[in-house]
Design a protein around this nucleic acid. Structure first.
Lengths: 210, 210
DNA sequence: TAAATTTTTGAACTGAGGTTCAATTTTCAG
DNA sequence: CTGAAAATTGAACCTCAGTTCAAAAATTTA
């Protein structure tokens, strides 16, 4: 949105120096992370711009220098998360067995969820987005879900998994993973690595034939 | 809160007839269900009193005849859900094996989630509650989580389950179950009965020794 | 260091939505 | 049928939070 509108900055195409541009980008990410943290716990509507600004030691009006409005922040959060998660699938498909493909996807998704916390966007309220953005995010999310279902479906066909309903199996997996956004804290005693391995074990084993 | 405050209705202890009282109670439940539906999808802050009132074909001011404020509705939702879920555990403990105990708990929790939708309170934003209510709800939720962990712990000790971390195992289960509130629709093709059985199978099997 | 540009700020505007309340309509009880 | 109680309404209030904007502060560039 920021770079695609024709009239936004058509007069001065590349006036900003690389240094300034990089700094601005860094700040944007900082703001996004602050927003992410706040959205994750308090929800989009429950989070005020003051909440986000306060984390950065700045007034809320400063945020408008980086994002046109609050919804743009939520959208950016979703974008980043979806991008990261989408990348998981291409790597997963290279694994030899379907069980390993699922294991990889779960581990990586959990890692995205805990390490950068940026994967938590899938757990966010999509309804707060504008119709256009909402449709886009839902489409991307559905693509991801579909890819997971395909793995399960093939695993079942190959006799690797029990005759489960792929849709329900994936709902269970995504529920467990997305729920992480609700309780995980980097200060806690739970190590992300362990968490991912544990979830993958639990959820994939539940599909295997005896 | 409605019946415990000393000064609320101390002068007229039982003026309302049984019929009126029953009708009022029925209406309260109707409002609660409407609120529940709205909270479940749009979140507490994202839901307006107009949203809830509109479902009932009434103006928002009518709601104040049944609840002192919006927070009271959220609190009532939590109360009902927690009560139902708490009842699950006592029945579960009567089952012979730990696997069966878990299976029962998961099935019933899913049923509460889909049938009445009242179990979705555990999935709600607790932070929107007043400090007092928040503490109460968190305590009840922790009790429930602890009970589930105990089953897992004992199952591990008895050699029935693998040597999993009870905390993580329960997080995975509750994540899958609570996530139901996000996608389940009574109009959809998924039958609650099947869903509960499927989730129980998936999640319990994942804990069993090979 | 000085001009230009970027970033931040404080004040003010605005609309949405929770809440109050007196008045009206509906329902109940005798 | 009639008075009383309950339920609902519409108007108004008020706070909060998203947004705008011109001015000030900080930073970059030459």
């Amino acid at each position: 949105m920021a770079g695609t509108a024709p009239g936004t900055r058509s007069r001065a195409p590349a006036r900003r120096s690389a240094h300034v541009r990089a700094k601005r980008q860094r700040r944007r990410v900082e703001i996004l992370h602050a927003a992410l943290r706040a959205f994750r716990t308090g929800g989009y509507h429950g989070t005020t711009l003051d909440d986000i600004a306060q984390q950065l030691g700045v007034r809320k009006t400063a945020l408008y220098h980086y994002f046109p409005d609050k919804e743009a922040m939520l959208y950016a959060c979703h974008r980043e998360g979806l991008e990261e998660v989408a990348g998981i699938m291409t790597a997963a498909r290279r694994r030899p067995t379907y069980a390993e493909q699922l294991t990889h996807a779960i581990r990586e998704h959990v890692r995205v969820m805990t390490d950068t916390l940026e994967g938590s966007s899938l757990a966010f309220e999509v309804w707060a987005l504008s119709p256009r953005h909402q449709a886009e995010v839902i489409a991307a999310r559905d693509r991801y879900e579909q890819a997971l279902r395909d793995i399960v479906r093939r695993g079942v066909a190959a006799g690797e998994f029990r005759a489960v309903d792929p849709k329900l199996a994936v709902f269970a997996m995504l529920g467990a993973i997305n729920w992480v956004a609700r309780w995980y804290s980097a200060d806690g005693s739970i190590r992300p690595q362990i968490l991912g391995a544990h979830f993958a074990d639990h959820l994939v084993r539940g599909l295997l034939v005896l």
